[in-house]
């Protein structure tokens, strides 16, 4: 799943997970994992790399499908018009 990161780079993202979209004026909250995915996308990482970084920065129980979670999250970003 590729995503255009130029749109994402416009977003103001605070460390606490508050997101402001200057294009629409909409605001969002992301959780810690969401924040990690957003920074990964902004840095131009692909889904596999982001999933791997989630596995490294969080305590994962084992059953989770991190790739699926990232795909799912990107879909949500698309619905909110934050990626194309």
């Amino acid at each position: 799943m590729s995503s255009d990161s130029s749109r994402l780079r416009q977003l103001a993202v605070s460390e606490s997970g508050f997101v402001f979209d200057p294009l629409t004026g909409h605001t969002f909250t992301v959780n810690a994992a969401g924040l990690a995915v957003l920074s990964g996308l902004k840095a131009g990482l692909d889904v596999d790399a982001i999933a791997a970084s989630l596995g490294a920065s969080f305590e994962v129980e084992g059953g989770e499908d991190l790739r699926r979670d990232v795909d799912d999250f990107v879909l949500r970003l698309r619905e909110h018009g934050l990626v194309k």
Partner: peptide, 14 residues
């Protein structure tokens, strides 16, 4: 210790 994993979530403010 790293934080417990939760699926990434984004919620738009009403």
């Amino acid at each position: 210790m790293s934080p417990r994993y939760e699926r990434p979530v984004i919620v738009r403010h009403a």
